[in-house]
Nucleic acid binder design. Structure first.
Length: 537
RNA sequence: GGCGCUUUCGUCUAGCGGCUAGGACACAUGCCUCUCACGCAUGGAACACGGGUUCGAUUCCCGUAGGCGCUACCA
């Protein structure tokens, strides 16, 4: 199963390699295989969502596979429920995986904690080849080194002064192991070597191996590898062709190249693409949960209940964002199609996405624009699709509305909001008669003639057998014309009686929705409580 | 501190040697109109700085400055 169908071929894949040299003419083109590999340490950060999205777009565009791997090699940081949360998040967003934890596939297990035996074997391979060594220094000893030496680094210059299998004689090591001493396996980084990482977004990045330390690859304490080893072994075994991940990994990419080389896998090494980070909307630094709390926007896809602290963090889904809007917004944070099109469906994103056109600088998280995207998608959505969430909002406020009412109000009012939940204060009057009248509107719209006009209007309405919008319009407009009233005077005063303030859709829409009886009731209530004739200015 | 990445309107960005530096969000104004919105139109608003290369630099190169990241037996 391990090295199964590996044809060790990765270069030459379609994606723009014309400009990226390196062609291996006689090799077949492997299918694109990319992965999203989160650590189940809590809710999925929105930046992680974008990384997953880019992986998804890339995979789909190339007819490849997207793999979901769980990187739980730090047992202390495991948070129950995180894995399920992540899966549910992607389900909501419409990002589909082809293989991985909960999705099946032939390259499993996909949870790193279940791959102990595999890593052990590869660590041994490195040990046998003299490319790694065992180190017995305790955390305390290492702390002491760091305290004593200003820039201590466990590397070629210091390793011979430390307690490891390079410096200890075999009998001592045997004794140590027999006594059950804990150790780690460190990668033996050869000094003074320029390591080149060829990044799809950033071009060639060269760093000297002197600045790399002898990274811990494996811990005997929990018999698990660290990220670096597990990552390389898994990406190799799972035949990953492209590693698309956040920029925070760029500094360790040379180490990863060295690891591929140490294993003899350099020819089949995946291509790298390091994405720019998502930054705070204001101020400095990368986007954090606190920014969301402070500025009032979610940084997680779904609401998250912290199992330890009980703390609740808001999510995009619960905050009323449409998944399509979140996807569209995120996709354009760090990439754009190069045209002036801003609203793109998932399929359009898949068709147009281009890794090499990703921007390289970090992007401040402009959540206000995210709200605009939601507005656009609400405009685009049909009213039937929006009905359930609006109906839920009404119920929350104690309103039982018919489906026809829900859809009607939606069609009248949705263009005014960024979120369905913003609809309640704007739509309340459809369902609840005003109990008070906005002072400013009264001053401006309740004129001296208003009481008389409204009294007359009541009569006109009472006389209406047919209360359809057309019938009202004909009769009321005729009355206004006959009396030579000003349309604005009548409508604004009428609005005040029905709504309680000076806002809302066209008056006939409102009166038709309310029906004849309710309309008259509200008008009479208003006439009774607003200043009467002679009192109004 | 060291290493790396990065730098066009307030924000997201287009630009790939010669442009009145384009679009979007936000903001302002106007139009529409029975009100409020929506929508539409218009407007203000940017090439970090200093050297090169070049007939010519926002664009290429080198510095400087700013920003970001990494620097764990975390990912």
């Amino acid at each position: 199963m391990l090295n199964g169908g590996w044809k060790s071929v990765l270069y030459g894949i379609c994606c723009n390699f014309a400009t990226r040299k390196k062609t291996y003419p006689f090799m077949t083109q492997p299918t694109v295989r990319v992965r999203f590999a989160p650590s189940p340490t809590g809710p999925l950060h929105i930046g992680g969502v974008r990384t997953a999205l880019y992986n998804y777009l890339f995979a789909r565009q190339h007819g490849g596979k997207l793999i979901f791997r769980i990187e739980d090699t730090d047992s202390r940081r495991f948070v129950p429920g995180a894995e399920e949360y992540i899966i549910e998040s992607f389900k909501w967003l419409g990002i589909e995986f082809d293989e991985g934890v909960s999705f099946g596939g032939d390259y499993g297990p996909y949870r790193q904690s279940e791959r102990r035996a595999i890593y052990k074997q590869y660590v041994q391979q490195l040990l046998d080849a003299g490319k790694a060594y065992m180190a017995f220094d305790t955390p305390e000893e290492l702390d002491a080194c760091r305290a004593n030496m200003p820039n201590f680094q466990y590397d070629a210059h210091t390793r011979m002064q430390m307690r490891n299998s390079l410096t200890l004689d075999p009998t001592t090591i045997e004794q140590l192991l027999a006594d059950g001493a804990q150790y780690v396996v460190r990668f033996k980084v050869e000094p003074d070597e320029d390591v080149c990482v060829d990044d799809l977004i950033r071009g060639e990045v060269v760093i000297n191996s002197n600045i790399l330390d002898d990274k811990v690859l494996y811990k005997s304490a929990d018999e698990l590898p660290t990220y670096h080893l597990a990552n390389i072994v898994d990406d190799h075994l799972m035949e990953i062709t492209h590693v698309i991940r956040g920029e925070e990994w760029l500094p360790s990419a040379p180490l990863h190249v060295l690891l591929y080389r140490a294993f003899g896998w350099e020819a089949s090494m995946p291509r790298f693409a390091h994405l720019p980070l998502l930054l705070k909307p204001d101020g400095k630094g990368k986007l954090s949960k606190r920014d969301g709390d402070r500025l009032g926007f979610p940084v997680f896809p779904l609401e998250w209940h912290d199992p330890k602290t009980g703390e609740v963090s808001s999510g995009y889904r619960e905050s009323g964002y449409l998944p399509e809007a979140v996807v569209n917004f995120l996709a354009l944070l760090g990439w754009n199609p190069g045209t002036e099109q801003e609203i793109l469906s998932m399929q359009e994103l898949i068709d147009q996405f281009d890794l090499t056109k990703c921007s390289r600088a970090g992007a401040k998280f402009d959540y206000v624009k995210g709200n605009w995207f939601n507005h656009e998608y609400i405009l685009q959505s049909n009213d039937e699709a929006l009905a359930p969430s609006f109906d839920a909002l009404l119920r929350e406020n104690g309103i039982e509305a018919t489906h026809e009412q829900v859809v009607r109000v939606l069609s009248l009012m949705k263009s005014r909001v960024n979120f369905v939940k913003e609809l309640w204060p704007l739509c309340k009057f459809f369902f609840v008669a005003p109990t008070e009248y906005d002072e400013k509107t009264v001053r401006k719209r309740w004129k001296e003639q208003s009481p008389r006009q409204m009294t007359e209007l009541c009569k006109v309405i009472e006389g209406l057998g047919d209360f359809s919008m057309e019938a009202q319009e004909t009769a009321v407009n005729q009355w206004i014309e006959d009396c030579d009233y000003k349309l604005g005077d009548v409508m604004n005063a009428w609005r005040l009686t029905l709504v309680g303030e000076g806002k809302g859709p066209h008056m006939y829409e409102i009166s038709t929705f309310l029906g004849k009886d309710e309309t008259l009731r509200r008008m009479q209530t208003a006439l009774a409580s607003l200043p009467g004739e002679g009192l109004a200015k």
